[in-house]
Measured scan of single mutants.
Amino acid sequence: MAAAAAAGAGPEMVRGQVFDVGPRYTNLSYIGEGAYGMVCSAYDNVNKVRVAIKKISPFEHQTYCQRTLREIKILLRFRHENIIGINDIIRAPTIEQMKDVYIVQDLMETDLYKLLKTQHLSNDHICYFLYQILRGLKYIHSANVLHRDLKPSNLLLNTTCDLKICDFGLARVADPDHDHTGFLTEYVATRWYRAPEIMLNSKGYTKSIDIWSVGCILAEMLSNRPIFPGKHYLDQLNHILGILGSPSQEDLNCIINLKARNYLLSLPHKNKVPWNRLFPNADSKALDLLDKMLTFNPHKRIEVEQALAHPYLEQYYDPSDEPIAEAPFKFDMELDDLPKEKLKELIFEETARFQPGYRS
């Protein structure tokens, strides 16, 4: 834990890192770190609560700039109880001085990944967590956004079992017609939660990839272990087919990539493993919904509104309290091709509203 900075004593240090967030945020305490930044909790002297502050230093890398800009653009436009918001952003007053960006968010005690390492969940908890994931996802999908990296560590939890989806750095506007060349190379989302079509096709992607990830998360809540822990690309596919069985001819016809289709045709026939054999203690309604989410063919996979209306979630289902976005989200430009200098300018502009004396 960093010592509390005395008023006016300059930035606090946390594990050798400068955290320049005073005077409003003090009493910093280390939480963890990701690929390009550290997260601390801090005391907000204005709202009198502890908050989470993520320090991001992305400006050396085009990919990190892209992810940072995506996350900020999306989260500043989203407003939903099951999606983490941005409360404040701290950065230098000029673009030349801006080396880091500090993002202030609600402090959540833990995440689903940490929880599943230590606790076996009751059916009631599984049901409530799944409902909140789908409630947040309904809003995301209504904005025409794909999260693309749903996994237990991106689901934040607090002691009252509130759940918030975080990390929109890989999110995209849904565009089933656009052929994202190089899709697989830039697709760094965790393999275990990846839909089979991501490994088999490169053309376009749809909201059904997020539903697949939610199915993987439900299976993990039922058993405290990942359902498809593939060691590499082909191993991942083999794990999936080992449980779902061989795809039907109709399902194979959806695979545009001939090499991928021929690979699947070359494999020995596998039978589907019954879900109640894998999860003998699970609620039968939970397994019915799991089956509809972990469907090989993305066109037959359940959609988020149908999933919310499934009998497993009937005690929570309330369409009048499951809000959607006001308007579909649009990125003005494809960020993939922009140089990091341009992305830095866009991050600077996007964060201006939090600067003292800002006038829109």
Rank of each mutant, 00 (worst) to 15 (best):
Y128C: 05
E350H: 15
A282C: 14
I86L: 10
E322K: 03
I217Q: 02
T94Q: 11
R301Y: 03
D175F: 09
G204C: 10
E71G: 10
D167C: 07
G204W: 01
P280E: 07
R194N: 05
L218H: 09
D179G: 10
E314S: 12
Y316A: 15
E345V: 01
E250V: 05
Q17N: 12
E81G: 07
W192L: 00
I217S: 03
E96P: 14
V188I: 01
K114P: 04
N45G: 09
P247D: 08
E71N: 10
L346Y: 08
N257M: 06
M199N: 13
F78R: 07
Q62M: 10
F348D: 06
Q105C: 11
S208Y: 00
H147L: 00
A92C: 15
Q105D: 09
S284V: 11
L290D: 02
Q17V: 13
T190M: 05
D291H: 10
I86K: 10
Y131W: 15
S208Q: 13
A35E: 03
R353S: 01
K259V: 06
L244M: 01
T63D: 07
E334W: 15
E60I: 15
E303P: 15
D332I: 14
A6H: 13
Y36E: 11
S284W: 11
M199Y: 09
H120D: 11
K330H: 14
A286C: 15
H80Y: 09
M333F: 13
F348R: 10
L290E: 02
D177A: 00
H61A: 09
A325S: 02
P196I: 04
L75H: 15
Q97I: 15
L170F: 09
L134V: 06
Y128P: 10
I86F: 00
Q17K: 05
F19V: 01
L137R: 04
R225C: 03
T181Y: 07
I198C: 04
L267W: 12
S223A: 01
C65S: 00
L294R: 07
H80V: 12
K270T: 12
P356C: 15
A260D: 02
I198H: 06
G37W: 05
E33S: 15
H180Q: 01
Y187R: 05
D291N: 03
E186L: 08
I140N: 02
P339Y: 09
C65N: 14
G357M: 06
P11V: 05
D88C: 14
R359I: 14
D288Q: 11
S284D: 12
A6E: 11
T63L: 08
G357Q: 08
V304K: 08
A42D: 14
D111P: 07
H141A: 11
S153M: 09
P339V: 09
F183Q: 08
G215I: 03
V51I: 06
D111C: 05
Y36L: 05
E109W: 10
S223V: 03
H178R: 02
M333C: 13
L313V: 15
P23M: 14
E303K: 02
N144Q: 03
N45P: 14
N82Q: 08
E326N: 14
I165S: 09
L156M: 02
P298T: 00
K54P: 03
E220N: 05
H299V: 07
Y358Q: 06
I56Y: 05
M199F: 03
S142I: 14
Q355Y: 15
I133P: 06
L264I: 10
T190P: 02
R225S: 00
N154I: 00
E96T: 15
T63H: 05
G85F: 13
A282M: 14
W212C: 00
R301M: 06
S208K: 12
L28K: 10
L222E: 05
C254Y: 01
K55C: 07
N238K: 02
R24Y: 13
L28P: 07
G16T: 13
